[in-house]
Design a protein around this nucleic acid. Structure first.
Lengths: 189, 189
DNA sequence: CGACTAGACGCAATAACTTTGCTTTAAGCT
DNA sequence: AGCTTAAAGCAAAGTTATTGCGTCTAGTCG
């Protein structure tokens, strides 16, 4: 039986807050379950029973922090909207903190649901932008195409080749994804 | 001073072998440093001193297993070569074992060098294929373009959205990456 | 409104893992 | 062959992870 409110909710909030505080105080790599438990005013066994281990807890916190808090800005046309979104996405994800969150989200994630959630967040934001463009009468690519041509290359390079990466790469990806050809449906999963 | 041969090499080989054996016997998630040490005929402190912790050891082993062992096949033309390579890459990476290796490689990797190595392996293989195509007189895309349009989408979906993914997706990615437009230089990092 | 039920937490003992100082081995060099 | 020193072994100390059991409380039913 789920217990959305009450004591359980307080414990969860308290533990999440403790993780955020301690991450900024001592750094992500120095965190331990007992340390988090003490800060949260909880016993370690509570955390172990509820989250399993440190990685799963961090994964849980990471997904929460990677959730976008605002709708993408409306700048009047598709290219501007998508470029602005991609730049912001890049800035958040490519920072040391962002990379750590992504890795945590991927890591302590036995069934892949947390990673899937992150991807879903991005897809939702893109969907908003593309729907808006379509309503304006612009001809917009498919959401999956934007994921393949913009999100995936960004993520790949952030995770596997972080060197020499900057926001201009994100802009170029958007430009080539939106501009050329692509009349036939692009590859879809 | 580096000690490439001798006892250190034997210990490394023995530990790596122990990891591989135990992974298939008890599963990746049940591994512990003391367990590996015992199987390898080594004391736990040796592993802790040399690799730091279990994650870094797993990352080390993962990179070794992700190294391609053969040059890509030569089937006579660019599309065939790249398609065959992408299918094989997909099969290896999308399997449960492959996903586990990728995650391990990303995980215990403080400076990102292991992940970079994985990406370099793929880039090398692609380079061989593209060079061959150019020598045949075919006009081939840039290595970076193939990474953006084929490797990155594959990896992104394997890591973030493993559901409903199959080899035909890899084929479609190659088809759209090689075939259309792309006269101007595609986005590069 | 009050008793009941079951999931979640606290506590404490136990077990397992990690770290560390010191000693011993053996690879590479002269 | 002898020397030097990185790396491994050993063992004690410290920390973290697991687990059984009693208690509390949110949600439910009478």
């Amino acid at each position: 039986m789920a217990r959305p409110g009450g004591r359980s909710a307080r414990v969860q909030a308290s533990v999440h807050a403790a993780v955020r505080e301690l991450t900024s105080e001592v750094g992500r790599d120095a965190l331990t379950v007992p340390m988090i438990a003490q800060r949260a005013g909880v016993t370690p066994s509570t955390i172990y029973r509820r989250w399993g281990d440190l990685q799963e807890l961090m994964s849980d916190v990471a997904v929460e922090r990677l959730r976008p808090d605002t709708a993408p800005k409306d700048l009047g046309d598709l290219v501007s909207d998508l470029t602005a979104w991609a730049e912001q996405f890049f800035d958040e994800m490519a920072s040391p903190a962002g990379r750590a969150y992504i890795r945590d989200a991927l890591l302590g994630d036995p069934d892949g649901s947390n990673a899937g959630q992150c991807s879903a967040y991005a897809a939702e934001q893109i969907d908003v932008i593309l729907t808006r463009a379509t309503e304006r009468g612009e001809n917009a690519p498919d959401t999956e195409a934007v994921i393949d041509h913009v999100v995936a290359p960004l993520m790949y390079r952030i995770l596997f080749r972080p060197d020499g990466l900057d926001a201009s790469y994100a802009r170029r990806l958007v430009a080539t994804a939106v501009a050329p050809s692509h009349k036939g449906p692009p590859p879809t999963a």
